[in-house]
Simulated assay, not measured.
Amino acid sequence: MTDYTKKTYGRNKEVAELFGLFKAGKDISKHGPRRLGKTFVLDRMVEQAGSHGFICLKVEVAGCNEPKMVFRQLCDAIDAHHSIPKRTFTLLKQRVAQVASPRSEQVGQWYQHALGLDWESYLERLLKALHEDKKNQWAILIDELPIFLKALHDKGEDGVKQARDFMNLFSRLRSAQPRVRWLVTGSIGITPLAHAGNYMGVMAKLHHYPLEPLTEAQAIDYLQDLAQQGLPHGRKAITEQEAKAIVDAVGWRAAYYLEAFAHHLPANPESDPAKVQANMNAAMDALLKPYNKARFGTWEEHIRKHHPVQQQGMSFEVLNAIAPHETGLTLDALLAALGNPTLKRETLRKHLMQLIEEGFLYQEPFGDDTAPYRFRIAPLRLWWKLHRPQE
């Protein structure tokens, strides 16, 4: 098992900062583009929590489509956490069981009876028990909250109400049990959901923590360590010249795409600039082959699953228009390229903001109408240009 506390790319600075915010009484919203490493940071927080004076529970809610399922995921996280003292775990189960019939025999999981009854009361009692635990301080890390909320919204008006009620419950429980710290993450835009569901005020109370890509030095260290673990074709090394070239070729220093590129390098490490470039070209060509659709097709799937049906067509049209242009398109150039006389400039701008938030695009400097909108990940742009996904 890798000891990430000793790795430059182990996100140790970010982990320390997040626990520092917890100790300052802050609850945190850590949203950002997909594949940036948000879940990786949560895993490191769970591992390092003890050294910062916390017990962290990571709760994955992307597969939930009912509010009570979040309660079940939280209970499962408690079950799966090996560092919780046995006495503490026993007390937590007892506190939850007391809501209903404290003397009745429990069948199945210790929280099972709560799912068919008033699960909100069980959740409130569980959080109160965490709050009143004098020996430990607890933090709950909710991964992919917006995907769960989107699943509720997709049910229609009743689902939107469910989402609003859940977020209001979340806000109330945060206030009632202030020793319990919270961190929520997401890779799809939560702002449109919060606007539609009228719970922007809940999100505004959270401290926003922006997660940045790896630095160039961290990315190089990551690639060279990756090679030592073994790559296809029997590779055991990536030269510094190759590592720098990979970082330049990918364009976005996210471990997932750095690794994907590295796995397609030819067998022989090279330091000569011409041979390094030949290796980069060969790796990029291999990465864009149809058999790698699973790596890039998730972005197409993201649009189909998480963009409103009436906006999916625009998303594909915008990305298909920008993909042929390595340096991107300005707002006015894109508006002309789309050729839709009914499309308003401000409507397009708002849509581009969503694509930036979700990691498809970037603009530098941000907010400058003369600055082009470009694909954030260079291989994704080339894949999109080559395969042109459609609505």
Rank of each mutant, 00 (worst) to 15 (best):
H81D: 04
A196N: 05
E14S: 02
L42T: 10
L329S: 00
H387V: 15
H233W: 13
T330M: 11
F54S: 03
Q218V: 06
V41R: 02
G297S: 05
K350C: 02
L335G: 06
T88V: 14
A255V: 12
E364M: 10
K38V: 04
P85F: 05
D76Q: 15
F296S: 01
T185I: 01
I190C: 04
G116H: 14
K58T: 06
Y209I: 01
A286R: 15
T347R: 10
V96H: 01
N268C: 05
D118C: 01
V107E: 13
L126C: 06
E124I: 02
A286P: 02
A321K: 02
G25F: 10
T370R: 07
L382D: 06
R374Y: 08
H264T: 10
L331K: 07
D76R: 15
H387R: 08
M200E: 14
A227C: 00
R179S: 13
S104V: 09
K93L: 04
L18Q: 09
E216Y: 09
L169T: 03
H207W: 08
H208D: 15
F261D: 00
K93T: 02
L193C: 12
L92S: 00
V202M: 06
T215C: 04
M200H: 08
R103P: 02
L21E: 08
D27C: 14
F89M: 09
Q98H: 14
P102Y: 06
V59S: 07
Q354V: 12
Y222C: 03
T191P: 00
R174I: 03
E301Y: 11
L91T: 10
